[in-house]
């Protein structure tokens, strides 16, 4: 861990983050799962219907705790963000998710 440089201001702000300096990039692109494609399509529909904006989604993903941000898959993070935005807007209630 390099002590000489300050950490990025937020966990998601990864540009130049020193902790990945020696992490190779996996060049594979495995196919998306059915879950991934459903979440992706649902998000697109909700955006089209004016029920979520890109910025709301982004803020919700960036607000995940670091363990969740690092541990969840890409579309699991999207799903968490969609749920958080729809709850905050009152489109759905907690009882829907029980």
């Amino acid at each position: 861990m390099a002590q000489s440089e300050p950490p990025p201001p937020y966990h998601h702000d990864l540009g130049g983050a020193a902790r990945f300096r020696c992490t190779p990039i996996e060049p594979d692109d495995p196919p998306l799962s059915d879950f991934d494609r459903r979440v992706d399509a649902l998000r697109a529909l909700l955006r089209q219907k004016g029920l979520i904006t890109t910025d709301e989604q982004r803020l919700a993903i960036e607000s995940l705790p670091p363990e969740a941000y690092d541990g969840l898959t890409y579309y699991e993070k999207w799903l968490r963000a969609i749920v958080a935005v729809l709850l905050a807007r009152g489109v759905i209630g907690w009882e829907d998710l029980a």
Partner: peptide, 9 residues
């Protein structure tokens, strides 16, 4: 995360 971090550095 590795691509996002390293591409700019």
């Amino acid at each position: 995360q590795a691509y996002r971090a390293r591409a700019v550095r």
